[in-house]
Design a protein around this nucleic acid. Structure first.
Length: 504
RNA sequence: GGAGCGUUGGUCAAGGGGUUAAGACGCCUCCCUUUCACGGAGGAAUCACGGGUUCGAUUCCCGUACGCUCUACCA
């Protein structure tokens, strides 16, 4: 048992938006680190220059900030192991590749992309491996002089790992337990590319060592290449220094099977990215959970429950509660289908749970300058009145909008069917009664309304809906008298008048 | 094709040799509400299949099926 400080890393490629699976990986990293009093590091894996996307890195950090998952070290936040961008560490990797070559654990391969393509076309399921490598052009078949000559000529080459024969490689995964691979069945992965950049395989191992990572979390899709990483650790830094691995289950699409993708969101109508992501290549915008009206608290909570649970009946967790209770042992092995309905439920719960100050801030953001003339007490009152009928923050627009300004549209259709002269007279008189009303409060307003209905020999029931539609525009919202009490005498009268005009 | 991983209700899931197999979402019914929600009370699952082991398996073992991931000089 070593007592080294826990250090974990999230290592995204800046190739596009940050989707659910990515955020969940961050979250589990973060929760594990903080639960154990450790550090959370973000390292940018940008070794593939062809896939680099402008703005992606900045976007990733914005998402982390929104979620409240702040890194202790990163290219943005700095740290003692800088640089944290692999493209800026290019020079570091070379020596390790060279070391592997000297030790006979890796070799130069001079095959061109075209030659490889041809080979793959000619042979079904071709793999560059111990079974095929002596048919290829590399330093294993070429003699030393020939190899040296090619290198001197500046021929393009990559460095590949030389997988050993018939060796069992074991990996003790924190989630899956012992997983083993036969090295004869694993191909000779490229470690260093022709442009001098490392591939993921070399870069993770080197950087995890250099950055003293103790626990490494990543998606399950990495499991098949894990033996390469284990071997590299063995060759380069000693297996005893290897971080403990945890391969996280995948987040699956709601219908059918398979990994959740951006496409599924478009197809099924829900966000997949944490925040709005605009692809600079085609200007296409993907909506994010944030912009859709999700609270970050709910987003994080929902994600945590996808593949993990506390073992209790508690479902609503703040980030701090998650940190306290998180344990890697309780992470599921199987993938979880994403359920947008449940995601929305979490948000509704969080809207109800959130403290007044935070909620007011969000509401002010939604309405913008429209709320300038209302004081916080009034706004808070309204929020309290409508928040339990809001699932998304954007729902406040409809549910609370009529408190701040007259409804823009009136559901006259629902009004007209049972509208008649008697009712018109009633409401005309109601305006007068309200004008004379001394105590403008919910109970007295209802009293007045009731009394007038009795005089006109109308049932209160048939008057409630018209009244509601006059005040809010439709068949929704809190108690009508409460609304009237809040919006005030003149506004109430104006709205009744307005609809009366509309109907005549 | 190969390798690895996985499989408790429509979904998230608890549980783990003997249980009425939790709870939540969604769905349906009812109550509350002279609107819409919230809320409350109910309803619907034998744990992929087949063999073992065992007095007894959903739970342990072995197969099979199915699914997924990987199989790039992408991560």
């Amino acid at each position: 048992m070593n007592s080294k400080k826990v250090r974990v890393r999230f290592a995204p490629s800046p190739t596009g938006g940050l989707h659910l699976g990515g955020v969940r990986t961050v979250l589990f990293n973060y929760l594990f680190a903080k639960h154990n009093g450790g550090d959370f590091i973000v390292r940018i894996e940008d070794t593939d220059q062809t896939r680099f996307v402008e703005g992606a890195e900045e976007y990733i950090f914005k998402c982390l900030e929104w979620c409240g998952l702040q890194p202790d070290e990163s290219p943005l936040h700095g740290g003692p192991f800088a640089p944290y961008r692999q493209s800026e560490r290019k020079a570091i990797y070379r020596q390790y590749a060279d070391q592997l070559i000297s030790a006979g654990q890796a070799y130069y391969a001079f095959d061109t992309a075209e030659e490889l393509d041809e080979k793959r076309k000619a042979i079904n399921n071709f793999q560059y491996s111990q079974h095929t490598r002596n048919e290829m052009k590399n330093s294993l078949v070429l003699d030393e002089a020939a190899t040296q000559q090619l290198l001197n000529e500046g021929a393009a080459y990559v460095i590949r790992i030389k997988m050993p024969q018939e060796t069992e490689v074991h990996l003790n995964d924190m989630i899956r337990g012992d997983v083993s691979f036969n090295t004869s069945l694993v191909d000779d992965k490229v470690l260093l590319k022709a442009d001098g950049m490392p591939t993921y395989h070399l870069a993770v191992v080197v950087d995890d060592f250099l950055m003293q990572i103790t626990h490494a979390f990543r998606g399950e899709e990495w499991l098949p290449s894990a033996p390469v990483h284990v071997l590299l650790w063995q060759y380069l830094f000693g297996i005893e220094n290897m971080p403990k691995w945890a391969h996280l289950p995948l987040i699956l699409k709601p219908d059918g099977n398979g990994k959740l993708s951006k496409r599924d969101g478009d197809r099924l109508g829900f966000p997949v990215f944490a925040m709005d992501w605009k692809d600079p290549k085609n200007e296409e915008v993907n909506t994010g959970f944030k912009e859709k009206g999700f609270l970050s608290e709910a987003f994080v909570n929902m994600l945590a429950m996808l593949g993990w649970n506390s073992g209790t009946e508690q479902e609503i967790f703040s980030l701090n509660e998650l940190i306290q209770q998180f344990s890697i042992e309780r992470v599921h092995k199987g993938g979880a289908k994403f359920d947008y309905e449940k995601a929305k439920w979490y948000n509704g719960e969080w809207i109800k749970k959130l403290d007044a100050d935070s909620l007011r801030m969000h509401i002010k953001n939604i309405f913008g300058t429209d709320l300038g003339k209302f004081d916080d007490a009034y706004i808070d009152h309204i929020i309290a009145l409508v928040k339990e009928r809001c699932i998304l923050l954007s729902d406040f627009k409809e549910q609370a909008g009529f408190f701040f300004q007259s409804p823009e549209t009136i559901d006259t259709a629902s009004l007209q069917s049972k509208w008649d002269e008697k009712k018109k007279i009633f409401f005309t008189e109601l305006i007068a009664q309200f004008n004379a009303q001394e105590n403008w409060n919910t109970a007295d307003l209802e009293q007045t309304f009731k009394a007038l209905a009795a005089i006109h020999e109308l049932k209160q029931g048939e008057l409630m809906l018209p009244f509601r539609i006059m005040l809010v525009g439709g068949k929704f919202g809190p108690t009508v008298f409460e609304i009237a009490a809040l919006i005030g005498k003149s506004e109430t009268a104006n709205r009744i008048k307005h609809v009366l005009n509309l109907l005549s």
